[in-house]
Structures are given as structure tokens and as C-alpha cells.
Design a binder for these strands. Structure first.
Lengths: 182, 182
DNA sequence: AACGCGCATTAACCGAGGTTAAAACGTATG
DNA sequence: CATACGTTTTAACCTCGGTTAATGCGCGTT
């Protein structure tokens, strides 16, 4: 059996509208979600009400709260739809049960986790080593399609600056682009 | 077979002195390293010579460059011993071969990757949502033993500030502690 | 058309942390 | 003991981004 078969057999199809939550920060949700289509944001909300965006998710991404699914703790972040979204919901514990019996599923899960780990390492690198301006420029180059789809407010909260800060960064970056293009 | 058996059977024991590199940024190294004892830092070096510390590793940690081991690219960071260190070197591809044949090894690898993923998510959260001062205070509470063992220079490069910046943060934090303790 | 609402920009002010350089400490080595 | 080297602190100055608030812009609703 492969991961696709597992999704077909054990998954539950879900449709969500713009503004709907898949789960909220603080809830227990031990599922993983495979995204068939749509766009979502995973975000933290601080006690003071400050929002920070962990990631944007779209087609073929897999998302879920590991601390909730694996450790049984409340979700440390919430998951909200920015576009109409079709998901397949799967039970994390069912996936783990299958992996314990089926070496193919286990190895596909290993691949998923390796991809995920590398994605998180890349983001760690960007926060540790790059300035907000460099993170913005990198995102413009690497995911121009994403930037078209989200507001500057959300983009800034993903980059770790305020909307006002991002507006200034954009201005600086595009001014410098003009100079180098002369 | 379990992971410990795999280490015994396929691992190579290595000893390193203070200042030795396990691997350098830019090299190809497709191994994983299990740390039996010692202390190391994984660090990035920018083109301008700025060092940023990705993580500190000690007993029972597992470290290796995923981009090198999994994708075959050069290591994006280097690994250096801060204390005399005993390692067990294992081949990542051998581990993957074993996982494909042995469902127990595969599931232990899944657990390792889940732990690793949660660790990286925690660090992402700290950079995204917390100030340098908050990151410092959190580290003082959660890993006081680590702070004793490393220099302030290295600590600052782990927190994403300069040594000068960390000195100021410390001063602020300890002044506030005194006030609250009266 | 008029209104409201959220988003983006701009300006003024502020604070955290970077940069540079000097001084104060440690501590190892001759 | 004296020197030298790395670490930590301190000070002066500067830059970047946060904060607040005002303004403008687009867009949907009535």
C-alpha cells in the first residue's frame, strides 16, 4: 500500500470556505490534513493579540499540529482558509498504526518528514542569518505566485515584521532595483 | 532490530578534540552522527564572515546535514567540537536501506524525525514570535546547564544577536530580576 | 452615488540592537 | 611574574523596524 491508497481508504474529504478554521490555537486536534486545493495560513496568536504566520499551505501540502497529534497537547497554532479549500483529513494515530505494519507506508512517511524537516531548517536559516529585507527579497524570487495571492498584512506577519515595516522594505527594495536597472 | 543494534552493527566510532571539525560547510557529508558524549556547535558562515549558530549538540543527539545526506548537496553548515567528543558515524543511505527492509528501524527513524521536526518548529516559533530578550530569558530557564558551558559569543550567535547586543540584554534582564525580587 | 471597511502608504517619534572602538577581565603560556 | 590572547563590558553613534496616527486607496454593500 502507498500513501495515496491510505488517503483514499482512511481519509475524510472536507470542504472549507474563506475565513473558516480547520482548527484553532488551543484546541486538541490529532489529525493531519492533506490539501487537495486551496490556500491556508497557519498562525500563532500571542496573549497580546499579535499574529505571526508560521506558514502558508496549498496544493499537495500536508499540515497538522505535531504537538497535538504526537504529544496530545493543545495546538500551538491555528489553521485558517484564505481561499476555498478542499482537504483530506486523516488520523495521525491511524497513520502511525499503518506504518507499524506496512514498511512502504512507513518509508513514505519518512520521506514526508524529511521534506518537512528540510523546509523548517530553511526557515530557521532565514530567521537566523538574514535580515527582514533579505527574507523579503528571497521570497519575491522564490515564490512570486504566493505573493500575488496574499495581502501585505499577512506577508509581513510571515516575514516577522509589521505591515508598516514591510511597506518601508518594499519601497527600499524597489528603489534599489530601479538604480541597478539603469 | 532496533536503532541501537543498527548503531552497533553499522556505526563507526570516532573521537574528536576541542576545535576539530566533524565536517565543514561546503563539503559533502552523507553521514549522520550519533553523539555519545561531548559538545558541538552547528554553525553557518556567511560570505561576509558572519557566524550564526544553528544548534548546540550533546549526549544522545543525532546530527547531520539533511541537504547533503538526502539531496547530495554540499553541507549548508559546519559542525565543530566545543568539548572533546565521542561520536558514532552512520551512513544515511545504509539507514534508509535498513528502514526499507525493517519496519522497526523505519518506525524508530520516524520517531527521530518527529522529535527533530518539533525541535525545529519550536525554534521557528521563537524567532517568529519572540524578541531577542525573550529568547534569551527562555533559554536561561530551559537550558541553564548549556549556558554554563558555552561562551557568551557563541550564545549570542545562537540567539541571533551580536555579543555586544547580548551583553546589553543580560544587563537589562538581570536588573529587572533584582527589582522583582525586592 | 454614498458609505463603510480593510488594506497600504506615509510621517513622526521611539527603542532595540548593530557597529566600532576602547577598556576591563580572565586565563593560559612562556 | 609578564605577556598575550580571547571574552565581556561599556560608550558613542547609527540604522532598522515598531508604534501610533493620519491619509489615501480599492471594493463591496446598500
Amino acid at each position: 500500500m502507498n500513501f495515496y491508497d491510505f488517503l483514499q481508504r482512511e481519509g475524510i474529504k472536507i470542504e472549507k470556505k474563506i475565513g473558516d478554521h480547520v482548527f484553532r490555537q488551543g484546541e486538541i486536534d490529532t489529525s493531519l490534513y492533506f490539501i487537495n486545493s486551496g490556500l491556508l495560513k497557519a498562525y500563532y496568536l500571542s496573549e497580546e493579540g499579535k499574529e505571526s504566520i508560521k506558514s502558508f499551505l496549498s496544493d499537495k501540502d500536508i499540515i497538522g499540529s505535531l504537538t497535538s497529534a504526537y504529544l496530545g497537547e493543545p495546538c500551538s497554532f491555528g489553521l485558517l482558509c484564505l481561499q476555498p479549500t478542499k482537504l483530506t483529513k486523516i488520523s495521525f494515530s491511524a497513520l502511525r498504526e499503518y506504518s507499524k505494519k506496512d514498511v512502504n507506508i512507513a518509508n513514505e512517511l519518512i520521506d514526508v518528514l524529511l521534506q518537512f524537516s528540510m523546509k523548517k531548517e530553511k526557515r530557521e536559516y532565514e530567521f537566523l542569518c538574514l535580515s527582514a529585507e533579505q527574507r523579503f527579497s528571497l521570497l519575491v524570487e522564490s515564490r512570486p505566485n504566493l505573493i500575488e495571492k496574499i495581502t501585505q498584512n499577512d506577508l509581513s506577519r510571515y516575514l516577522g515584521v509589521t505591515p508598516v515595516g514591510l511597506s518601508r522594505i518594499k519601497k527600499r527594495v524597489y528603489e534599489n532595483m530601479d538604480l541597478t536597472n539603469i
